[in-house]
Write a protein that binds this DNA or RNA. Structure first.
Lengths: 273, 273
DNA sequence: AGAAGGACCAGTGGTCCGTA
DNA sequence: AGAAGGACCAGTGGTCCGTA
């Protein structure tokens, strides 16, 4: 059993983010610091463009193209008064509590969310995909097989505003380990909680056992995802695919030292872990 | 056997299209006339925007974003002199001969291409997809399962400039019928050639037997495509999907007249054929 | 007129980076 | 500092429509 105490959690996971009005932030321009340290060729083509952020009002901000699809506005998160500084007019903007590493079954303390709740979000997305799929079939539309932008839009529309694309894509591989080897996933959670590691460290650590699993399936991480019914609806994360490819190259290079010749022209890469 | 006399054809299917230089076309702005008469909600949102066409030079016209990927130019189609009008400087731009309805095995007359050649183009695309797939697997990239933009770009790169996306998408359902019921496809070709119909009429006629096939598979045209190894790499055309959905609604409405109630709230549509 | 295809555009996958 | 997510952007699917 895994869905204990999640329904309560899923409705009270919100933090507040004070948002400043009517002021321009003096951008101090730090360097681009990629989370995964790879695949950063895109942004470098526009690196020196003065990117001015559009100031956010608390009015409606949707930019749909078709004007006939204007549903009602919910409530706009309410105005929380000026409870932070002295002369700044602020609007409280809710965001989810940050995740912490929790053991299986453990409920996170105040202002934090646990990993059971994180995985619960993936189940919710699956549920939303199923709804989108049955709607599409009913209407004769193209039917998505993966969690697409359309699904995230649907989640927002039905009120699950705590679900968003960057978050879900960020932790997909953690959910993958949870699906593919729950024992190993649980052990990892206990170990990282024990050591007092933060969520980022735990997230990074989830890659290694997944690469090992892919190795046992001919390094085909796509096949591993597709073979699992709850995982097959998620795109394989770029970083995970790259790590599996790199590990395969390593394995090929090692075995070619033992006498065989590598079939493709891959250079011997550096050690991975 | 079906691949007779195609290799010769595939290298000589080119017409010429004189392209005018250094002159602005006085756009006389006719009404938008959708080929299929449906699904034209997109363009109507921008209907009154003065769309100025960019004049084409015979110099290189690629607009890639990354400047490091500049491969060599082929030859620029050559300058054909001014053999058309009196004082217009023109450049001959090659395009494919138009298709005509031919029987199976029939070679088209001069300046025309036959339907065996058309279907051969789909086989070529499949070949190019296989190449792109093996390249992607070798490099650890995401591996396409369908004929995507990437495949069309690859076709261009390896010199198959007679393959382009609008053409291939336009005739997909004709190829589908050829794959799924070659007997029916051949019969239709003979009948339309006999009657002296043009390619557009034959193309329209290909829809009906496909809808009938989908009916025998629970109206699931996606399943029909996916079940066929050579067809599964092609996206189901929008129009075909819509026709199958409409026919299903019709069938449901007819049967509900006999006593049963329709499960979804579909209104009774007009007869299809 | 019938037809081929360059080029456009809305919405996608992917994730950066301004924000707190 | 560690982290959540609005918003950006290159390249996609789809096909219109200027062209001949």
């Amino acid at each position: 059993g895994f869905n204990h105490a999640l329904d309560a959690l899923s409705q009270e996971g919100l933090s507040e983010e004070p948002v400043q009005q009517e002021r321009e932030a003096a951008a101090s321009g730090g360097e681009a610091n990629n989370d995964d340290g790879r695949a950063k060729q895109r942004r470098s083509t526009k690196k020196s463009k003065a990117k001015k952020k559009n100031r956010r009002k608390n009015k409606k901000k949707k930019q749909r193209s078709s004007p006939e699809e204007e549903e009602e506005e919910e409530d706009g998160w309410g105005t929380g008064g000026s409870e932070e500084g002295s002369e700044r007019s602020v609007v409280e903007r809710q965001r989810e509590h940050p995740f912490i590493v929790t053991e299986p079954g453990e409920v996170a303390r105040a202002k934090k969310n646990g990993l059971d709740y994180l995985f619960h979000l993936y189940e919710q997305c699956r549920h939303f995909l199923l709804q989108v799929q049955s709607l599409a079939k009913e209407r004769g539309d193209k039917c998505p097989t993966k969690v697409t932008n359309q699904v995230f839009r649907y989640a927002k529309k039905v009120g699950a505003s705590y679900i968003n694309k960057p978050k879900m894509r960020h932790y997909v591989h953690c959910y993958a380990l949870h699906c593919l080897d729950e024992e190993a996933s649980n052990a990892l959670r206990r170990a990282y909680k024990e050591r007092g590691e933060n969520v980022g460290a735990w997230r990074q650590a989830c890659y290694k056992p997944l690469v090992a699993i892919s190795a046992r399936h001919g390094w085909d991480i796509d096949a591993v995802f597709n073979a699992h019914p709850r995982l097959s609806i998620w795109y394989v994360p770029t970083k995970l695919r790259q790590l599996c490819h790199l590990a395969r190259s390593n394995a090929a290079a090692s075995s070619s030292v033992l006498g065989a010749t590598s079939s493709d022209g891959l250079p011997p890469p550096p050690p991975m872990f």
